[in-house]
Amino acid sequence: MNCKAIYISATILSSFIFFSCKKEIIKSVPKTDSTSIKTEALKADSTVLNPNDSLYGLVDKSVIGTQFLTKSSLAPRLKKLLGADYDQMIANWNTETPFEKQDNILHAWGCKQHDCNTYSYDLYIDVKNNKINVYKFAKSELTILKEDNFEIELKDNFLKDLNIKKQNIETKK
Rank of each mutant, 00 (worst) to 15 (best):
F150Q: 02
N92W: 06
P76S: 07
T32V: 14
K38V: 04
N163D: 07
T97R: 14
G83W: 05
K139Q: 05
E151L: 12
V127R: 07
A44D: 05
P76G: 09
N117R: 15
L82M: 12
K31W: 03
V63Y: 01
K22L: 09
L13K: 08
K160R: 11
T95I: 12
D45Y: 14
T118H: 14
D85S: 15
V63H: 00
A108Q: 01
I125T: 00
K4R: 13
A44V: 06
T39M: 10
N50M: 12
N129M: 09
S140W: 01
P51L: 09
T143K: 15
D156K: 14
Q167I: 00
K101C: 07
G65M: 02
A75S: 13
S120G: 07
L159M: 01
D122H: 15
L142K: 08
I6A: 12
S54W: 08
I152V: 06
A75F: 05
N104V: 03
K166H: 02
F99Y: 09
E24D: 08
T35N: 11
K61T: 07
T66A: 11
N149A: 07
I90Y: 03
L159Q: 08
T97W: 10
P98K: 09
K172R: 12
S140Y: 09
N92V: 03
N133E: 06
I164R: 13
F18E: 01
L69T: 01
V59P: 04
N104C: 08
L123Q: 07
K131H: 13
D60S: 15
K27L: 04
L58I: 03
G57S: 15
L13A: 15
S120Y: 08
S46A: 12
N129Y: 11
S20P: 01
D33M: 06
E40K: 15
E153K: 15
N157M: 06
K172M: 07
D85W: 09
Y56P: 04
A84R: 12
S120T: 12
N94C: 10
N133R: 05
L123W: 04
N133M: 08
Y124C: 05
I144D: 02
K173M: 07
G57K: 11
A41P: 02
S9M: 09
T171P: 00
Y135I: 02
S15Q: 03
D33T: 11
D103Y: 14
E40A: 15
N149G: 01
L42G: 10
K139N: 12
L74W: 10
I125K: 01
K79V: 00
K112T: 06
E151T: 13
Y7L: 14
G110H: 04
S36I: 08
G65L: 05
L13E: 02
D161E: 10
E170Q: 13
L58W: 02
D156P: 04
F150V: 02
H114C: 02
Y7V: 08
T171M: 11
T39G: 01
N92M: 05
V59N: 04
K80P: 00
K71C: 00
I90T: 03
A91G: 03
W109M: 14
D103G: 10
S14I: 10
F16V: 11
G110R: 00
F137Q: 02
N168A: 11
G57W: 05
